[in-house]
Design a protein around this nucleic acid. Structure first.
Lengths: 251, 251
DNA sequence: TGCACAGCCTGACGTCGCGTCAGGGTCAAG
DNA sequence: CTTGACCCTGACGCGACGTCAGGCTGTGCA
C-alpha cells in the first residue's frame, strides 16, 4: 500500500506518515524504485499500535520505545492499552459527575468552592493542601460570598425559578411530614416534577441522571445540608423518591 | 491570589498562566504595584472553564471565543461540556470494546482485518470505502493470511494454549449435544473455566468483561462463525452460558 | 537591620507534532 | 503523449507551552 491509501485507511494525513518515517517511529518496510513508500501489513499493525498509544497521550518517542521493546509481546500492549482506557473511562466519568454536580449546585443556588471545581485537574494532593489552605488563601467564607456575588442571573428568571424550586421542596416536605413513604406514588410524582423542572430551567435531565443527583443528595454534605435545613430527614427522603422515580421510568 | 497559588490550585504551571495572559485568554483582573499578577475569584471561574475546554481538545483561541461570547451563559457552557464529555465516554467505551475484541480474537486465533482495527480512527466513511476496497487493496484473503503469518507466538505456548481452548470448546459442545441447558450449572462451570483460561493465558478477564465477550459471540459474525463451525447452535449456547455465569458471579 | 531565599517579572529561545507550501518526479487512463 | 492524481524531499510555520537568563520583590529570622 502507498502512503495515501494507508493514510485514508488509518484516518491520518500523508504528512503524518512522512513524519513518523522521518523520526523512525514507523518506516515502511519497502520502497519502490521511484522512491514511493510501500507499507506492508505488519506496518499497518504497528501504525495501529502507534495511533492507540498516541490517542492515549503518549509522546511519540515513548511510543517508539514501547513498541521497540523486544520483551513486550502484542498481548502486553493490549493489556496496557486496556488498562489505560479504563483509567480514562473513570476520569471521564468523574468529570461528567463534576459537571452534573455543578449544574445541580447552580440549580439549588449553592456555590461550590474553587477547590472543589479544580479537584479533577492535576494530581491533587489533599494533605499537602489542607494545612496551607487557610494560611494561603485566608477567609474561605469571604471567597464563597464573592463567588455568590459574581454570579450572573437575570433577576426575574431567577425569582421565578427559585419559586418553582421552593414549591417542589415544600411538597416534598409535606409528603415527608404526613408520613407518605418516599417510594410511594405521591412522592415519586413530586420527584418527577423536580426532574422536569430541572430539564425545563437548567439542563436536560433524563431519569438516569436524575438518579445520580439523588445519590448525591445524601453523599455530598453540601447538598444534604441544604435539605436537612428545611426538614430533618428530607435529604434521604428526596434522594429515595428521586431514585424510585427513576427506577419507575426506567421500566 | 498570586500566580503560583493559582497554578498550584488548578494543577497547571506558572508558565501556562503567563501564556494565557499573553494571548489574552485569561488576564488576571489586577496587578500589584510591583507588577505581580493578582487573580480574583472570577478569574478562577474562567480558568476552570478554560481547563475543561482545553481538556476536551479545543484550541485556546476557540476557547477564548466560546468564553467571550456574551450570548452564552454559564449554564450553556455546562450543557456543552456535559454533552462533549458524554461523547468522549462513548468513544472511550468503543475503544475499550475494540481492544477487548482484539484480545479475544487473539485468544481464539482469529485475525481481524486492518479495516476493523482502524475503524475507530478518523471519521470513518464506510460507504465510500466499500466500493473501492477490493480495487484498492486487492485480495483480502491474501492480506488476512499475511496477517496470520506475521503474528509472533512462542510455538510451544501456543500449542498448549490452543489445546486448552479446544478442550473447553469440546466440553461446551458435549454439554450442548447432551441437551444440558446453557444456563445450567454444568454449562456455567465450563464458562467459568473459559473465563479463567483467558485470564491465565491472555488478559485479566473479570466476569463483567466476560459477559461482554459472550454478547460479542452472537453479535459479531466472525466469532459466531468460529463456534458454528464446531457445532450448530454453539455460538448462542456459549454466549448464554458465559453471560449466565457472569450473572452468577456478579450476585 | 540586613540578608538569604522563595517567589515574581519579562524576554527569548527550544520542543513536539505535525500543517502547509514549493518545486519537482511518477503513473495510469484516455 | 498529455493530463491529472499521486508521490518525493526540503523548509518554514504554528500552537501550547518548557526552560533558561537576568533581574526585581517580599518575608522570616539572626
Amino acid at each position: 500500500m502507498n502512503v495515501g491509501q494507508v493514510a485514508a485507511l488509518a484516518g491520518v494525513t500523508v504528512r503524518t506518515l512522512h513524519h513518523y518515517d522521518r523520526i523512525g517511529l514507523l518506516s515502511p518496510s519497502g520502497r519502490t524504485t521511484a522512491g514511493y513508500r510501500r507499507y506492508a501489513p505488519s506496518d499497518l499493525d504497528r501504525l495501529h499500535q502507534v495511533l492507540v498509544y498516541r490517542e492515549l497521550g503518549f509522546p511519540l518517542e515513548e511510543v517508539a520505545t514501547l513498541l521497540d521493546d523486544p520483551a513486550a509481546d502484542p498481548a502486553e500492549h493490549l493489556r496496557r492499552q486496556h488498562r489505560l482506557l479504563l483509567d480514562r473511562m473513570e476520569r471521564t466519568r468523574a468529570m461528567v459527575a463534576a459537571v452534573e454536580k455543578e449544574m445541580e449546585a447552580r440549580h439549588m443556588g449553592i456555590s461550590l468552592t474553587p477547590e472543589e471545581r479544580f479537584e479533577l485537574f492535576g494530581d491533587w494532593l489533599p494533605e499537602e493542601y489542607e494545612a496551607e489552605a487557610e494560611e494561603r488563601w485566608g477567609d474561605t467564607e469571604a471567597w464563597a460570598q464573592s463567588q455568590r456575588r459574581t454570579r450572573s442571573y437575570t433577576k426575574e428568571d431567577w425569582v421565578r425559578i427559585k419559586a418553582e424550586g421552593e414549591d417542589v421542596e415544600r411538597r416534598f416536605t409535606e409528603a415527608l411530614r404526613s408520613g407518605v413513604p418516599a417510594d410511594s406514588e405521591r412522592a415519586m410524582d413530586v420527584a418527577e416534577e423536580h426532574r422536569q423542572q430541572i430539564s425545563r430551567n437548567f439542563y436536560d435531565c433524563p431519569p438516569e441522571m436524575h438518579a445520580g443527583l439523588g445519590r448525591m443528595y445524601v453523599e455530598d454534605e453540601r447538598f444534604t445540608a441544604h435539605y436537612e435545613q428545611i426538614a430533618p430527614g428530607l435529604a434521604q427522603y428526596v434522594s429515595t423518591a428521586v431514585q424510585a422515580n427513576a427506577a419507575r421510568q426506567g421500566g
